[in-house]
Amino acid sequence: MDYAFDFYSVLSNTDVLIDGLLVTLELTVAANVVGLVLGFGVALLTTSSIFPVRVLSMLFVEFFRCTPAIVQIIWFFYCVPILFDVYIDSITMGIVALGLNLTAFNAEAYRASIQSVAREQMDASVALGFGPVQRTLYIILPNALRLSLPVLVTNGIGTFQQSALVALVAVQDLMYAGKSLATQTYRPIETFTAVALIYFVISFVVAQCVEFAARRYEPTSR
């Protein structure tokens, strides 16, 4: 291998990458807020006793879980303006697409944990005279949140990585910045390696912190 590495071209353009990273982080955080909130709502709908509500919400979840994220993103960018005859700026569009995708995955995580909230907990809260709304707020939500937290975090990191896909529809995120830098400088190895490293370091550090916290607060039996 006789390739002469030149990381200077990357280092001298860090501001471009940082601007991209900020967009990536904005997309990630906003999509996570959408996913955490809507996900719980959708999870409640999927456990509803009204048949059409249940089926439609499950269909929503399964559709997002069973199609490629890139198809969803491109579909949103091309089809939403036509279908609803609106112009939405690309970052908002990215947030909506990524947020709904995350909503589906989080709904599944919430649903699993809602169903595992012990039946006795529900019986006890009925016996204590809680109404349905109070039951949801005081018993189900805290339990479901606690039980599904590891999966929610994993999903959140997943969305951070999937946000790179919006570069394909010209949202100027980290991946987009990397792509254009690679073409401008003719230094794809250095650039893409740097981009990969940035994604990796953030994902890895967040994942490790969460794992550490999880181990601290939930000591395994024995």
Partner: peptide, 24 residues
């Protein structure tokens, strides 16, 4: 950790644009 910690699209781009340069 590296392959789980980076976006698949970045991995794909890396192998498309960088691997040929690396192996010459």
């Amino acid at each position: 950790e590296v392959f789980r910690g980076t976006p698949v699209i970045v991995q794909l781009f890396w192998f498309f644009f960088c691997l040929p340069l690396v192996i010459g």
